[in-house]
Simulated assay, not measured.
Amino acid sequence: MRRALVGAVAVAAVALAGCGSAKTQNPTTAPTVSLWVNSTAKDYRQVAAGAKLALAEAQGHAGVFRINFAGRQVSDDPAAATKDALNNARTSLQDTQASAVVTALGDDAVKPAVFLLNSAGISTVVLGDAALKAQACDAGSDLYPSGHPTAIVVAAGGGVPASFRSSFSARLGFVPDEDAYRAYTGVKSVLASLAAPGVATDNSPPRLNRDALAAQLVRAHGDCATA
């Protein structure tokens, strides 16, 4: 059964252990955006922990934005995974503060979700393979009904650096796998993109320009030259 986990991560002392949620004790006037994480139930602990560690290191902020973490699991049953993934994507679409979705799913589930999110200009970080990366790097891909790329793929095969394994294990009390590291690096890419010039509007208070975020994420972190 799919479970929804939603929480704010806005201070460095976030409760990472067990991948629970924590809320800041310090009120802030910073504009808030959401970062969603979707993963199969069996991989969720690792993926969510990697994402939360990246947020904690950034003290829950990127540029002018305060970041809320929101996580949802997808069934491990392939027969239900695509339905779950699409339902989760629709939930993200209803979130007016949604900035990006980090997803760790099989191709059959992730592609329809990326398609749906692209229609609303929501950026996606996919923990995928080289073939999916090549497709994501193609601006004319069927993944993009809007005609504008909004997804990057963090491919497997790079392993887990010793420094990351050490810091992750010390803070969370369990050993990270490659999915945790890929989620961590994917979230770091989103945070860097959120802080880039032009991603926050000139309104008072600033608002998120989703198109600018997607363009920056793909341009700076898509790594499409190697696809």
Rank of each mutant, 00 (worst) to 15 (best):
A70D: 12
A70R: 15
G71K: 08
G71R: 06
R72I: 09
R72D: 07
R72N: 13
Q73F: 00
V74H: 03
V74C: 09
V74P: 02
V74E: 11
S75N: 11
S75P: 03
P78D: 08
P78G: 05
A80Y: 01
A80W: 00
A80V: 02
A81M: 02
A81D: 01
T82N: 08
D84E: 02
A85T: 00
N88R: 12
N88Q: 13
N88A: 13
A89D: 05
A89E: 03
R90S: 11
R90P: 02
R90V: 10
T91F: 14
S92Q: 14
S92R: 11
L93D: 02
L93Q: 07
D95N: 10
D95H: 10
D95W: 14
T96A: 15
T96H: 14
Q97M: 09
Q97P: 10
Q97R: 15
A98K: 09
A98E: 07
A98R: 11
S99E: 01
A100S: 08
A100V: 02
A100D: 04
V101P: 08
V101C: 10
L105Q: 10
L105G: 05
D107P: 06
D108V: 07
D108C: 00
A109S: 09
A109H: 11
K111V: 06
K111H: 09
K111R: 14
P112G: 08
P112M: 04
V114D: 00
F115Y: 13
F115L: 11
F115K: 13
L116M: 13
L116Q: 14
L117W: 09
N118T: 04
N118Y: 06
N118L: 10
S119G: 15
A120E: 12
A120M: 09
G121I: 11
I122Y: 09
I122H: 09
S123Q: 00
S123L: 00
